[in-house]
Amino acid sequence: MGIDTSLLWAVIILVGVMLYVMADGFDLGVGILFPLVKSDHDKHRMMASVAPIWDGNETWLVLGGAGLLAAFPMAYSVILSALYIPIVLMLVGLIFRGVAFEARGKASPRSRHLWDLSFFAGSILATFCQGLILGGYVAGLDVVNGQYAGGALDWLSPFSVFCGLALIAAYALLGSTWLIMKTEHRLQTRMRAISAKLVWGLLVFIAGISIWTPLEHPAIAERWFSFPNICWLLPMPVLTLLAAIQLLRSVKQGESAPFMYSLLIMALGYAGLGISLWPNVIPPFVSIWDAAAPASSQGFALVGALLIIPVILMYSAWSYYVFRGKVNMEDGYH
C-alpha cells in the first residue's frame, strides 16, 4: 500500500494554517487593542512584546500558501481567483503593520500617532479580511471544469462579514491574554478587564456561527447532527464551553493560563471547521484527491517540506525561548 501524499499534504497545510492563526493571531490582536490603551509607554511595551517574533509567525502563512500551490494547484487557482480582493487587502494590511513596527520607534512624538494608526488599521484590516476569506470559503466556491466560475464579489455576504467580526474578537482575545502573560502592573490590569469582556463577545460569535453554518449548509448539519456522529462530536462544543469557563476564571489572577485557554478555544474552533469541511479542499464538492497534483510532484515537494518544517519549528521555538518572560519598564525582557 503506497503513501497517500495528498493526505499528508492536507495535514501539513492544515497544521501550518492553524499555527499561523494561533501565532499571528495574538500579534494581530495586540494591534487591534492599540486604541484601547492611552499611555504611549504602554503602547511601546505592547509592540515590544511581539516585535522579536511577529515576522516569524507569518512564516506559517507562507508555508500554507506554498504548500497549496505545490500539492493542490487547482485549489490554489480557484481559491485565489475567488478570493482575490480580500487576499490583496489582507496583504496591504500586513504591509502597513510591518512598516509601523519599524517606523514607530524611530518617529518623532509629533508623528508617532500616525504610526499608531497604521499599526491598528493594518491589524484590523488584515484580521477582518481573513474573516471574509474564511466566510467566503466556507460558503462554497463555484467550480466548473476545474476553474472558478463565480463572480468577483461572491465572497461578500452577511455570513462572511459576521466571520470577519468574529475573527476580530478572537484575535483581540488572543492579544489581550498574550499581554496578560507578557506585561505587569497597570497594563496587565487593563488587559485582564478587556479579556473578560472579550470572552463573552467571542462566545456570542461562536454560538452565532455554530447555528448559522448548519442552517445554511445541509451537508454540514448532516455531519454534525446525524447519528452516531453527534455522539462522537459532542465533546467539541462541551470542551469549548469548559475552556471558556476556565478562561474567565483565569483572567482574574492567572499569568500564562489565560493565553493557553485562548489558544485551546482557537484550536477547538479550527478543528470544528476542519470536521465540517473534510475532505473538501474547495467546498462544497471538490475533495483533496480531486484537486491533487500528480503524486510524483507532491512527493518531490514533500521532501523539501519535510526538510524545512523542522527548521522552522526549531527557530520559532528558539525565538520564543530567548524572548520569554515579561517585558519590563525599559522595553526589554526580564
Results as ranks from 00 to 15, higher is better:
236 M>K: 07
192 R>W: 01
317 A>Q: 06
285 F>R: 02
169 A>M: 11
38 K>R: 14
282 I>H: 05
13 I>M: 09
129 C>H: 08
108 S>A: 15
332 G>L: 05
136 G>L: 00
274 G>A: 12
144 V>A: 13
79 I>E: 04
148 Y>W: 05
173 L>P: 01
303 V>H: 03
169 A>P: 01
210 S>C: 09
158 P>L: 02
187 L>P: 04
201 G>H: 07
222 E>L: 12
48 A>V: 07
194 I>W: 01
276 S>Y: 06
263 L>Q: 05
197 K>M: 05
319 S>E: 10
256 S>H: 11
154 D>H: 01
297 S>Y: 02
57 N>D: 03
116 D>E: 12
224 W>E: 03
147 Q>L: 07
326 K>W: 03
14 L>T: 15
32 I>L: 14
301 A>W: 08
271 A>V: 15
304 G>W: 12
323 F>Q: 08
51 A>T: 13
81 S>I: 04
99 V>Q: 05
247 L>N: 12
159 F>Y: 11
50 V>D: 04
21 V>L: 05
154 D>S: 10
237 P>N: 06
219 A>C: 00
96 F>L: 15
239 L>Q: 09
125 L>V: 06
69 L>H: 02
90 M>G: 09
291 A>K: 09
8 L>N: 04
318 W>A: 15
221 A>P: 00
133 I>Q: 13
249 R>K: 13
131 G>R: 10
239 L>P: 06
263 L>N: 08
47 M>S: 10
127 T>S: 11
98 G>S: 14
2 G>S: 13
179 L>F: 04
127 T>M: 06
311 V>S: 01
332 G>T: 13
307 L>V: 15
326 K>Y: 11
166 A>P: 11
204 V>P: 00
224 W>S: 00
265 I>G: 08
193 A>W: 02
32 I>F: 12
126 A>M: 10
66 A>Y: 08
291 A>S: 13
192 R>G: 07
239 L>K: 10
105 G>L: 05
